Structure formats: structure tokens, C-alpha cells
Simulated scan of single mutants.
Amino acid sequence: MDNQKPSLMLVDGMALLFRAYYATAVTGQFMINSKGIPTNGIYGFVKHLFTAIQSFKPSHLAVCWDMGSKTFRTEMFADYKGNRGEAPTELIPQFDLVKEVVASFDIPNIGLAGFEADDCIGTIANQMKDYVNVYILTGDQDILQLLDERVSVILLKKGFGNYHVHTPKTFFEEKGIMPRQMIDLKALMGDPSDNYPGVKGIGEKTALKLLKEFEHVEGIIANIDRLSKSNKSKIEQDLEMLHLSRKLAEIKCDVPVRCELEQAGLRIERDKALAKLMDIELRGSQSLLPLDEAFVS
């Protein structure tokens, strides 16, 4: 990372919102306001957001969102994320409201129907990494495939202010492969949380061994006769799913979205932001907004 460059934090909005919602929903603390709207997810989201801003001090920030469950991936594979139920009733009204809160901070909300937040994040990271240091804030390990010398990933851990910061070096030390090979890793072993199977019977250990030896899916297929009888048979039986899983695993970095740097500068107007937080009756609105930070006026 170049310390002379500005820094852009790209936030996976859904990751923060869901994490915040479930942390309090488990005990039934929905923080329902006088209009009957729950605000627990929004409250935790704002707290997560400002904790990260204070920890990493980005000069610029944008929040990316999923825009519905139908994407190009569900068109390729109908069961993609098909194991996820409907969003909880108490969370549904918070989806639009949290974006209004972000807008009141003068932070861009970015999302595009047909694509996931990850695709928007990947695209913007790609567009901007020559000009800024990019930090991606998420709870989702899929995004680690985007790591490079100018893109770091901040993984949220349990609680507030607990992070695991990944660079290409830390990723290699942990997995023994390069970040881009994460796509091939997921193609082989599948992803239960996104509901696609990869190759039946191949887990992480075998997948990593194959990738260290043959580099990527194409390399494995080109050398299929060198594999053990068991692995050769598993891959041959699931060849179609292997190719499909690779397409599902790869984050698209050419989505038609943009993030203009001048619109993403952190310049929060305290009165405007506070008015919004008080309008939705967010508990402790005053204490949620940092008092003396350079980005709050």
C-alpha cells in the first residue's frame, strides 16, 4: 500500500446489516420505534460503520448493496443461494431505511439489479486501485479473491472493532495459494452457504493439494490422467458442475457501476446526519456520531 495515496473503503452493506440484525434479534431486541419500525439492524450497522472508520481512517467511503435475490448467477444455476429463506419480517423495512441513513451521511449507496454487492465492490476496486488504496470491509471470505498489492480485505470478526485484515501475503501464508486461486478452490469444493456443490467428494484439503500442483481448474483437467483414480473419477463425473461452480464463484469486475472519488469523500454534516437518526428514533443517536473526527462537520 502507498501511504501517499488517498484510501477508499468499500463496505459490503448487507454483511454489516445482517451481522448487526442477528446479534440483537437472537434476544428479541428489535428496538421498535413509535412508527412500529424495528431499527436494531440499522443501529448496529451505524455502530459497525463508525467503528471501522475510526479504526482505519479512510479518506473516502462507499457502501455497496445486493439489489434483490435475482442475479445473473440465479439464471445460470436456479438453486444458487436457494438454501436461504426469506429475510426476517423485522429486517425487511430496515433495508431501505439503512440506505436513507447512509445517504444522510453523504456516503454513496451503490448497487445494480442483476448483480451482487461483491460484483460492484470488485468492479470499483478494479477501477480505483491505481489511484487509491482500497480497503474492503465485509464478513464474507469470497471477497478474498480480489486481494492484491493495492487491495486489502478487512474481515469482520465477532463484536465491534474486531477485524482480521488480509493482504496477499497473509492469504498465502494461510492457504498456500494465491488469492485468484480462491475461485478455483471454490469451484472444486463448492460453497454450502451459496448452495452450489462443486465436485462431490472433494473437500478443501484435496482441492488445495490439486491447486498447489496444477495451479487452476484448467491445469487439473489437462493433467487428469496424473490424478489418483479416485480424484480422476470424481472430477470426470462432475465436470459440468466444476465449470459451472467456477463461473458462480468468480466475482465480476466489469459491472456497469462507477464510484466518483469526489462524491465518496468522507464529509459528514453532523446536523443533517443527526436529524435522520433522530427521525427514525435511533436509540442514543447523539452518541452514535463521533464528536471530534475530522470527517464530521
Rank of each mutant, 00 (worst) to 15 (best):
G13C: 05
M14G: 08
F18A: 00
A20H: 06
Y21V: 05
T24C: 00
A25K: 03
V26I: 14
Q29E: 01
G36Y: 00
I37S: 00
L49T: 11
T51Y: 03
F56V: 04
P58C: 11
H60A: 10
L61G: 03
A62Q: 09
A62R: 13
V63M: 11
C64R: 07
W65C: 06
S69N: 09
K70T: 15
T71H: 01
T74H: 06
M76V: 07
F77K: 06
A78K: 14
D79F: 04
Y80V: 11
L91V: 01
I92D: 10
P93R: 10
Q94D: 11
V98H: 08
E100T: 05
V101F: 07
V101C: 07
V101Q: 04
V101K: 06
S104I: 03
N109K: 04
E116H: 13
A117I: 14
D119Y: 13
D119G: 13
I124Y: 03
D130R: 12
Y131H: 15
L137V: 13
T138I: 12
Q141E: 10
L144K: 13
Q145W: 13
L146D: 08
E149F: 07
E149D: 15
R150V: 02
V151R: 00
V151N: 02
L155T: 12
G159W: 08
F160E: 10
H164M: 14
H166S: 04
F171H: 05
F172L: 04
E173H: 01
E173W: 00
I177C: 10
Q181G: 11
D184Q: 04
K186M: 14
A187R: 03
A187G: 10
A187F: 09
G190W: 07
N195P: 13
Y196V: 08
P197Q: 03
G198R: 11
G198H: 11
I202R: 05
G203S: 07
E204M: 13
L211H: 02
K212V: 09
E213C: 04
D225V: 01
D225S: 14
K234E: 03
K234H: 12
H243Y: 15
L244M: 11
K247T: 04
I251A: 07
C253G: 06
P256S: 14
A264G: 07
G265A: 11
I268E: 07
E269S: 05
K272G: 07
K276P: 00
L277R: 03
E281M: 05
E281T: 00
L282K: 04
L282H: 06
L282Y: 03
G284I: 01
Q286H: 13
P290N: 07
L291E: 13
L291M: 02
E293S: 08
E293N: 09
E293L: 05
A294T: 09
F295E: 06
V296I: 15
S297K: 11
S297Y: 06
